[in-house]
Design a protein around this nucleic acid. Structure first.
Lengths: 120, 120
DNA sequence: CAGGATCCTTTACGATACTG
DNA sequence: CAGTATCGTAAAGGATCCTG
């Protein structure tokens, strides 16, 4: 039988699972990764840029997802005082720390797509 | 202005974003990562083991999520012919390739939880 | 332009009870 | 034991219209 690692009377795996749940709750939703990936790639983008860049998203969802991300300090929002106002979104330094996750997801997805068979 | 990488007339970032979407569609749902993480940790587990191990999940969800994972060849299902039948679930070699993603998620979650402030 | 308000459809999720 | 069936709720997502 495998010996289980324990810290402070709590199995390590439970700590890990909890951490994963926490992470995913912040990144839940259909568009979070797409938005984050786009912002990491694009540096600074306006609302319309994102709307164009992210295929299929509507303005309501984009707005809502951006608010979620901003409230978690993963993206920043800057209102420019132009004639009709303009808003720039950018990834924060904190948001950039998600890069490893995003890179792994992309890497795996690319590998996976190659080995797709008939499954749904 | 940043020069954009292009392969076969398709921006690299679009390929990445698509790959991420594909990956996440396979891993969507409240319990996928938890199940995968538990199976990676536990090697071989029965249905009841998983039900006990994964706090809060019900048998319906567990069953459904396992079927999803099995249809994507990430876990294997083995029926044992015991008196009342028993089923063992295990991570496949293919499923293990998700480890880097899971590790990054856990790592980030642990770092994130340390820096939580008042935000929801 | 950047969203908010409304309304509506579709999944996701969960509790309970049942079966080979 | 390992699920499936049924039912009900809640959340997610989307289309459209409206406004400072």
């Amino acid at each position: 039988m495998k010996k289980k690692a324990v810290i402070n009377n709590t199995p390590v795996c439970q700590v890990r699972m909890q951490a994963i749940s926490d992470t995913m709750s912040i990144l839940s939703g259909k568009w979070k990764f797409h938005i984050l990936g786009t912002l990491i790639e694009g540096e600074k983008l306006g609302f319309m840029d994102l709307l164009r860049e992210i295929d299929g998203i509507g303005s309501k969802m984009l707005s809502k997802e951006l608010q979620d991300l901003e409230s978690n300090h993963l993206v920043s929002r800057t209102v420019m005082d132009t004639k009709p106002i303009t808003v720039n979104y950018a990834i924060t330094k904190y948001g950039v720390t998600l890069s490893p996750i995003i890179n792994e997801l992309a890497k795996w997805g690319i590998a996976y797509r190659k080995s797709l068979h008939g499954s749904k």
